[in-house]
């Protein structure tokens, strides 16, 4: 009981508090162990088995871990989805938040992506996605494992299973314009035609479309030097009505998708084809650029 006068520091009560604290802890601990003994999910007081916090990494052992579609939560901060499909397939629809990591047939993995994955917190799950959860995703997983990334899974059934389950799809917008702007100042023109067809100019770069190889680094460096300038991708063929789904991939659409997945945000595809060069000295593509 508190009986101090209005001018006293209650030393006795402050000391008694420690006795009360000791009693509280003793009673609570006794109640805790009694409750643990009678409850259904009680745990043993002394644990003999080690905590199974870390396990051997399956990818190091050569096994491929698979994750079912219903278990994938792309918004979980401890899960990172990477899409091993080509950029045009990625642009047409991907798991929300997935990073593009196209597995080209004849090129190594993007080192920047590997560095980003390797720098994530320990315990982050990296889920590799392809169209069907097949060889492409497995190849990507093995390449990532060899590069030192851990916690790897292949999405079982790939994007086909994701779509069948009615899950949310994110698309990458690639605006289409009917032709090049009249005023070419301040823009970059990317020529998706095969090499040596058009001479380079200060306003245009050649980036021939190749579905086996990523864009050349030198060309990307030139484009990144003028990052603020919008990029217009031209080709010698009319863009089909639904370029995202048309196969084979339209060269202009393919290059545009590659550039978008590489981080270029202002990329446009020109629908009208360029005129072919005239062998008799008539209007040339050079003129068409003017």
């Amino acid at each position: 009981m508190e009986r101090n006068s209005p001018t006293d520091i209650p030393w006795r009560e402050l000391g008694i508090a420690w006795r009360d604290a000791f009693l509280l802890v003793a009673v609570a601990v006794a109640a805790a162990f009694a409750f643990n003994a009678i409850r259904e999910n009680g745990i043993p007081v002394i644990r003999h088995a080690p905590f199974d916090l870390l396990g051997p990494c399956p990818e190091v052992q050569g096994d491929i871990s698979r994750l079912a579609v219903e278990k994938l939560r792309p918004d979980d901060p401890h899960v990172r989805v990477v899409d091993a499909r080509m950029p045009w397939d990625y642009a047409a629809g991907h798991v929300p938040g997935a990073w593009p990591m196209p597995m080209y047939e004849t090129a190594p993995l993007d080192r920047e992506i590997i560095a980003r994955l390797a720098s994530m917190k320990a315990g982050t799950w990296v889920v590799v996605v392809d169209e069907t959860g097949g060889q492409l995703a497995e190849r990507a997983l093995s390449a990532l494992a060899a590069a030192g990334v851990r916690g790897l899974f292949v999405l079982e059934g790939g994007m086909a299973a994701w779509k069948r389950a009615g899950k949310l799809l994110e698309t990458m917008e690639i605006p289409i314009v009917s032709e090049l702007p009249d005023n070419r100042r301040g823009i970059q023109v990317v020529d998706a035609l095969p090499e040596n067809v058009l001479p380079s100019s200060s306003e245009s770069v050649q980036l021939p479309f190749d579905d086996l190889l990523p864009p050349e680094e030198d060309v990307l460096k030139r484009l990144r030097a003028r990052l603020q300038a919008p990029i217009y991708v031209v080709s010698d063929r009319e863009l089909p009505p639904d370029p995202a789904r048309a196969r084979p991939v339209h060269p202009g659409w393919g290059v545009a998708a590659q550039l978008r997945t590489l981080g270029f945000s202002r990329v446009f595809v020109v629908r009208k084809p360029l005129l072919p060069p005239s062998p008799e000295g008539g209007e040339s593509r050079e003129d068409a650029h003017e």
Binding site: L24, A28, A31, A32, N36, I43
Partner: peptide, 28 residues
């Protein structure tokens, strides 16, 4: 680890209830 896992939540619960009720507040 299990000793702490068993005891700590109950001590927290007891202390919380006593604090809310205002019983033996200084000890709690």
């Amino acid at each position: 680890v299990h000793i702490l896992a068993i005891a700590l939540p109950m001590v927290e619960l007891f202390a919380a209830v006593l604090f809310l009720a205002g019983f033996r507040v200084r000890g709690t």
